[in-house]
Design a protein around this nucleic acid. Structure first.
Lengths: 185, 185
DNA sequence: ACAGGCATGTAAATAGTTACATGATTCG
DNA sequence: CGAATCATGTAACTATTTACATGCCTGT
């Protein structure tokens, strides 16, 4: 049985403790979103498919009058998750409109490539800030669970963004050296 | 008129010289594919839409009996491309199944996270090699056109992959230090 | 009373890939 | 001659996002 990567995101998210679709979405938004996003439109139908396949089990756990279904992973689900984790990854995709614009920046008057690099840099700086906001929670969680991987991935994301922002800065300087703001020295 | 980023890829590709859909696809595969892919299923219909909108112009230029339509950018097309280049980028998406697996690696027995990092590292090393194969062609092209951006982006991609491969290596060592191959001191 | 968060879900639209069909040309 | 490449295109499928609908609960 072939599952989509998004199915494994869900499996992974319920593997430590049972969660509702809503909680899974919230968790994804705080964690994997940066390298693997998922929307309600995927999560709820996928939960039903996984339940039908016996990889998770839903249980009604209403809070007051508000209905709520939490899903727990089954033995078969744990097996499927591990089996996936052991297969080499297949998808590695980047869709970066900034790099795309930079690639075509030759269609613009000389100095304007610099503006693209500045936008890209600002974006990564902003991303770093948002990732740093997550940090305390992730650190606390590592202390509680002893699982080093989520924090490792978070630090990796921060470092990567720092590399990217730095690269933008270096390329900006290089462009400015090559074409010194128009009439210079 | 709102165009998709893929439309701008096409506009960018025909902005320097007229090209056929087939040539555009081949170019994309050698260049932007690494941060913005496009398939025939997108390119041919999009070329017709762009032609209908007056942003490109198709001309029949058969080679022998083999029919062939090359598309040239129009003044309006150049304007649309420049206008897009000046807008700040919107999309920045990464879909990295390796990072996803690493994130959930806690579901695996201790030592196995290392295997994921090794797979990721191998992938980036391989990517570096493929990018280096493109290098000579890109350098030669920069000499011919004087456009520094495509090569800049290519070097950026290589450096990024090098950073990534190095990070994998460092994280691998860290895991091995933390859990020295089972039963230690 | 109302805003905001909790909770589940679906319909419609958009995006994108894959596979196929067709046929010419070139090179070994 | 056959394989690879040039060349155009479409149909079917899969994935994914967005927007909406519904309704309860908590805090101000």
């Amino acid at each position: 049985m072939e599952l989509s990567p998004t199915a494994y995101v869900i499996l992974g998210m319920v593997s430590r403790e049972p969660r509702s679709g809503y909680e899974i979405k919230a968790l994804v938004d705080r964690t994997t979103r940066f390298f693997w996003a998922a929307s309600y439109g995927q999560i709820y139908p996928e939960l039903k498919r996984l339940a039908a396949a016996g990889l998770v089990e839903g249980r009604d756990e209403p809070r007051g009058e508000r209905r709520r279904t939490v899903y727990a992973i089954t033995a078969a689900g744990t097996e499927a998750l591990r089996e996936w984790l052991r297969r080499p990854p297949e998808t590695y995709e980047v869709r970066d409109e900034g790099l795309l614009k930079l690639f075509f920046a030759g269609a613009l008057p000389a100095a304007e490539g610099v503006a693209i690099l500045r936008d890209m840099r600002a974006h990564h700086l902003d991303l770093i800030e948002r990732l740093r906001e997550i940090e305390p929670k992730a650190e606390e969680k590592e202390d509680r669970t002893g699982d080093p991987y989520p924090l490792m991935v978070l630090y990796g994301g921060i470092e990567l963004s720092e590399w990217f922002a730095d690269w933008c800065e270096r390329m900006e300087s290089r462009l400015l050296e090559a074409a010194p703001t128009e009439r210079s020295n």
